[in-house]
Structures are given as C-alpha cells and as structure tokens.
Amino acid sequence: MSFEPKILAFLCNWCSYGAADMAGTSRLQYPSNIRIIRFMCSGRIDPNFVIEAFLRGADGVMITGCHIGDCHYIDGNYKTVHRYEFLKEYLDTLGIGSERLTLEWCSAAEGMKFSQKVTEFTERIRKLGPSPIKGDEQ
C-alpha cells in the first residue's frame, strides 16, 4: 500500500482556524491526512507538543497563525517565528529533519491559501516518506 503520511497541524483560534473553517464553507478539497489541534494563539505552541507529535508517529507537523502583525495577542506569532527556527535546528539534530515542519500564516479570509498549503505540505511529506524515527517505536 502506498504511504499515507500522518500530518498534525496546530492552528491559532483566530485567523488560521477561521481560514480552515472557510476552506470548509468554500468546499475546497484537500488531502484528508491532516488532523488539527486548536490553540488560542500560535505563541502557545510549546516545542514539546511538536516533539511529542513526532515521537508519537507524526510524519509532518504544520504550524499556522495569523499574519505577522495580525496576531490577536499583539506579538505572539513573533515568538512563534523564533521558536520555529529553533525547532527546525532541533529536528535536524534529532535526525527527524527540519523539512518535516512548516510554518504558514493564514488570515481568516484565506481559506484558499489554507487548503493549498495543506495540499502542498502533504505532498511534500508524501515524497519524503515516513518519519525516520517512526520505526523505533513500532
């Protein structure tokens, strides 16, 4: 059977969750591999959650938030950017690979962008194949 990646996305409650909702109302189709966890702000996304996701068996993790300057908590997403850079290095160190993590900004009106980014990311991970640390667990 062909490889179906498991993808986890963390969304902030405001812009990006709104974008996902809008992708729905606009009936924009995207691959069904993604599972979404909502937080109030992308700044809440503890690196632990991302690592945990990979440890549990995720093949890719997507973080989305409001566009820079639009965060509903002033500057939460600036912190997300820093954390993202740090996490990428960390994922390389761990041998998981930074290309399995992505950060996207979507406004509540960008249902189209959301569905496109999910599709692109899913395809990217599909090409990369299963996460290298997955075998360890099973």
Binding site: M40, C41, G43, P47, F49, K79, R83
Partner: peptide, 25 residues
C-alpha cells in the same frame, strides 16, 4: 489567555485553563 507564557515556562509551572498541557497532550 493567549498561553505564550506557558510555552516558554522551563518548569512547566503554567497552566492555561481550557487548553492545559495534559488536555492537549
């Protein structure tokens, strides 16, 4: 309630009600 503090706390001492570490984990 944005939770930014919790994401940075090195000793896991901060809980965000409605989105606790345990619940989300």
């Amino acid at each position: 309630g944005c939770g930014t503090c919790a994401a940075f706390c090195p000793s896991n001492a901060i809980t965000i009600s409605g989105f606790t570490y345990k619940q989300e984990k």
